[in-house]
Computed example of a mutant assay.
Amino acid sequence: MRGNGDEHDDGGKPVEDGEAEGDLFPAERASAMRMIEALLFASRDLLGPDEIAARLPGKIDIPGVVEDLRRVYSTRGVNLVEISGKWGFRTAEDLSYLLSREQVEERRLSRAALETLAIIAYHQPVTRAEIEEIRGVSTSRGTVDVLLETEWIRMRGRRRTPGRPVTYGTTDAFLEHFMLASVSDLPGLDELKGTGLLDSAVPAGFSVPVPNDSSELREEEDPIDETELFDLMVEGDETTNDRDS
């Protein structure tokens, strides 16, 4: 093992910093260490004594040689570790922060989620029942949950109708993501036709509502306090067994 000047090799000679580890062991031992080191370095999986022995010539004290290797690598950037009787190289625990990387996971929204988001953006404040009426199919809680997780929509309040359903609206994060100064910058009927997102032959009387994301509650909305909002985020505003189609 590489020393600090106080250690000695087998012949009693002081070991100087920078001296090759192979010089500290007899030739056969050093050769066995190199072979085992190569096997462990190249293997994606941990290797046990039988797997190592199957590739080495002659009979070698594998546990002893591995222990020598473990000491050699004990202060390196990678350490030789034993897990369930097998060995492998792993990054030194105190250096793991160097290899960590935060990465944003991109997830493609489903068609149901996109449709739901568009309805909320244009028709806010809107309840889930109203979303289902516009889409023509039931909207699962999972679809709304995904949009809440992206923080593109929020629970605004409760509609003053039987059952007091939750109303939804968009957020500043929605505007930022879609690079909109305000929700009123969403395309109108003529723009949607021009981009091909709407058939030019739309039904007579068809219109696109002018979106309004004002944080002010409407006359038909009651506020949601923080405790109730937390319960809604955990349990959902409604229970349904239906799935989006």
Rank of each mutant, 00 (worst) to 15 (best):
G11P: 04
F206L: 09
E105L: 15
N4P: 08
D68S: 14
D94H: 15
P57D: 12
T150S: 15
A201F: 10
T227A: 15
G11Y: 08
R135G: 00
V137L: 03
D172K: 13
E28A: 14
M179G: 12
P49W: 07
S200E: 14
S96A: 15
S214L: 02
V65C: 10
T143L: 01
L98T: 04
F89R: 04
E67G: 08
F206K: 07
L24K: 08
M35F: 04
V202S: 15
L198Q: 03
P49Q: 04
W152V: 06
R135Q: 07
G18Y: 11
H8Q: 12
G48K: 03
G136A: 03
T227Y: 13
E93R: 11
E238L: 05
D242A: 15
D68E: 11
A181F: 07
V208E: 00
A30R: 14
E219T: 07
E216M: 10
I131H: 00
G64I: 01
F25I: 03
L69T: 02
E51Q: 15
A30V: 03
V166Y: 02
E176C: 10
I83Y: 15
P57Q: 12
Y73E: 00
E176I: 07
E37W: 08
L98I: 08
A201M: 05
P223L: 02
V183L: 09
E176F: 06
G136I: 00
Y97P: 00
A118R: 04
P57S: 12
F206C: 01
G236W: 01
R90D: 07
L180E: 06
A121Y: 00
A20M: 06
S207Y: 12
K59A: 12
E235A: 13
E221Y: 11
E220T: 11
F25Q: 07
T239F: 15
R90V: 11
A118N: 01
G88E: 08
D10C: 08
S245R: 03
R111S: 04
V183E: 05
A113I: 00
A92K: 09
A53S: 15
T139L: 14
D172M: 08
E238M: 05
G169K: 01
G88S: 13
T143H: 04
D225R: 01
P187G: 05
L148W: 03
T240I: 00
L46S: 10
D68T: 04
S100M: 13
Y168A: 02
L180S: 03
A27T: 10
A118W: 00
D244A: 02
T195L: 12
M155P: 07
E102Y: 09
G48P: 05
K86A: 13
S184P: 01
L109V: 01
R156H: 03
R107I: 12
N241G: 14
S110R: 10
I62L: 07
L114N: 14
